[in-house]
């Protein structure tokens, strides 16, 4: 137990940071991804083209490259954001940027695949009663796409959880960076430390999967 007591401050500090990164980039990438998915199914060609290009570019760029581009590319042109209000320094903010821009492409595709499962007649009927594109999407199509979207979206968020660890090499002291710190500062074996960190990630992923399963059941019984 002394090992756990020794590890605890590191784990707490690390996972607090990991959860902040996760929460912010999850919310922001979902918003951005929804906008992109709307673009990809919109009747306006330039919007469709933009959505498609975005997905093709950022889904096919390795996350580490995104981090390098943003963390090493923004400051020289004087983009040094920080969100002091919630205690985010420049590196943490840039990490949220990188994770959001990257993950939004995957959120977009998960949503689009869900939209494709909805019978096109539903959208036709909505248009026929005079709904605008936005109403058709938000009132008729997306709510029905939601159920089909839960499993792929959960996968995207689980991947995002693990992807936050990339920030450990870009100035952010999150859970994975704490693993290295503990390696330096404690006498616990690497295996034990690894287990502590891995357990933290497993808990987060487990919560996401649990919420997804719960939502799936809710939607299923609502029919």
């Amino acid at each position: 137990m002394s090992t756990l007591a020794e590890m605890w401050p590191f784990l707490r500090a690390g996972f607090t940071n990991t959860l902040v990164l996760l929460a912010l980039s999850l919310v922001l990438s979902t918003i951005l991804g929804t906008v992109l998915a709307s673009m990809r199914v919109s009747p306006v060609l330039p919007l469709r083209a933009f959505g498609t290009s975005y997905v093709n570019i950022f889904r096919n760029t390795p996350l580490v490259v995104m981090f390098i581009l943003i963390v090493e590319g923004f400051p020289p042109v004087d983009i040094r954001p920080n969100i002091e209000a919630i205690g985010l320094n420049t590196f943490e903010t840039l990490a949220v940027f990188a994770l959001t821009i990257y993950t939004a492409a995957f959120v977009c595709e998960a949503l689009r695949s869900g939209v494709n499962t909805v019978d096109p007649g539903q959208a036709e009927a909505a248009r026929a009663v005079g709904m605008t594109f936005t109403q058709t999407l938000s009132v008729i199509v997306l709510p029905q796409a939601f159920r089909a979207v839960i499993p792929p979206l959960a996968s995207v968020y689980i991947a995002l959880t693990k992807n936050t660890s990339v920030a450990a090499a870009f100035g952010v002291v999150e859970a994975t960076a704490q693993l290295s710190r503990m390696n330096e500062q404690t006498v616990a074996g690497t295996g034990v430390l690894f287990f502590g960190i891995a357990a933290g990630y497993v808990v987060i992923v487990w919560v996401i999967s649990g919420i997804a399963a719960f939502l799936e059941r809710q939607v299923a019984t609502a029919r």
Partner: peptide, 29 residues
Amino acid sequence: TGSTSLENVVRDYGAEPAPFDTYSACVRQ
């Protein structure tokens, strides 16, 4: 990330740690 040097300045001098994976990346920062 995880070096003794970083731990030293954080623990003994209250520095804010910015871990990167290479020293050359640190120099660019």
